[in-house]
């Protein structure tokens, strides 16, 4: 296997007394779509900023494209594309100028920059708004423009920090579809997300982060197999407290989780479990059998309590 494009060993980021990233090991290989999954404050964005060479690591080793991010910052950044969590487009420029001036920061000749801007606007379906200012664009359009901007230097690695947070469903699907195409073209994608469907859709491999550490690693499928069951049964009882019924379900499936409004039973075979519930003489008002998802893994690993 080729040398990994991104290689981190015991990577740490501290802000004063606060440790945002607490010794993580990560390797990303060429052509991969790699995801950092985690709740807010897990350390995803700090990690992305270190990989983007705009935040010096506090400790540990980090090599990007075989180079040292502190010493070779400009040379590495020349080959990265970055789509930050919050769009930082230039409000004083038009859509097209946002791409052409950004290209100039990479030393791309004007003529090439113009041609590439046209291509990229077409790619993110913004050609019609090329001469509009940035401000009146919708959130989805701004996001697509930021993604286009991150591609202006034909990067080897594209870093996407929560690429679809805050977008409506149509806009999200459009962004996903474009990212798919990039992946097919062999571009290495590194993204952070807290959307499970996004991670399942896009990532070949991912790590789940919590409290600055990596708590699980693998492909979406492997993670589900390892940290959850094949199916989940959701039971809702007509009572103020679900707690009373939970006691009667012990022994059913691998794990029973009680939520304020429903009970989750993690089982290999959902329909069999539903039959068992009926045999116990219980009559839930609502029964749902579904496949286990990355969300179950995520909540299992990082807990249900709100972080912020």
């Amino acid at each position: 296997m080729a040398q990994p494009l991104i290689q981190a060993r015991g990577l740490v980021k501290r802000f004063g007394d606060f440790t945002a990233v607490d010794g993580i090991d990560v390797e990303v290989c060429a052509g991969e779509a790699f995801g950092f999954l985690g709740p807010n404050g897990a350390g995803k964005s700090s990690t992305m900023r270190m990989v983007g060479c705009i935040s010096p690591p506090s400790a540990g080793q980090l090599r990007i494209l075989g180079m040292d991010p502190v010493r070779d910052g400009p040379a590495i950044r020349a080959r990265l594309g970055v789509c930050p969590q919050l769009d930082n487009l230039d409000p004083e420029l038009t859509v097209r100028e946002n791409l052409t001036t950004y290209a100039r920061y990479f030393g791309i000749p004007r003529r090439v920059a113009r041609a590439r801007a046209a291509e990229l606007l077409d790619f993110v379906q913004l050609s019609e708004r090329a001469d509009s200012k940035v401000e009146p664009l919708s959130g989805g359009m701004k996001r697509r423009l930021t993604i286009a901007r991150s591609l202006v230097n034909e990067p080897d690695i594209v870093l996407l920090d929560e690429p679809t947070t805050g977008l409506d469903p149509q806009a999200r699907h459009l962004v996903w579809e474009r990212l798919f195409r990039l992946k097919r073209q062999g571009v290495t994608l590194v993204l952070t997300t807290h959307y499970m469907d996004e991670a399942e859709q896009l990532c070949d491999r991912l790590v789940v982060m919590d409290g600055g550490r990596i708590v699980a690693e693998g492909s979406p499928r492997a993670l589900i197999e390892r940290h959850s069951t094949r199916e989940v049964v959701e039971l809702r009882f007509a009572a103020d407290s679900q707690e009373a019924f939970a006691g009667k379900l012990t022994g059913l499936g691998e794990r029973v989780e009680v939520l304020p409004d429903r009970i989750l039973v993690y089982v290999p075979d959902g329909d069999a479990a539903v039959a068992e519930v009926a045999a116990l003489g219980l009559h839930p008002t609502n029964v749902l059998v579904r496949r286990s998802s990355l969300e179950d893994v995520f909540l299992h690993l990082t807990g249900r309590t709100l972080v912020d």
Binding site: I54, G73, R77, P84, D90, Y102, F106, R149
Partner: peptide, 14 residues
């Protein structure tokens, strides 16, 4: 306010 340079430092410009 515009956070313009946050975008610029992601490029080779220092």
């Amino acid at each position: 306010y515009m956070k313009l340079y946050d975008g610029v430092i992601a490029t080779p410009v220092q």
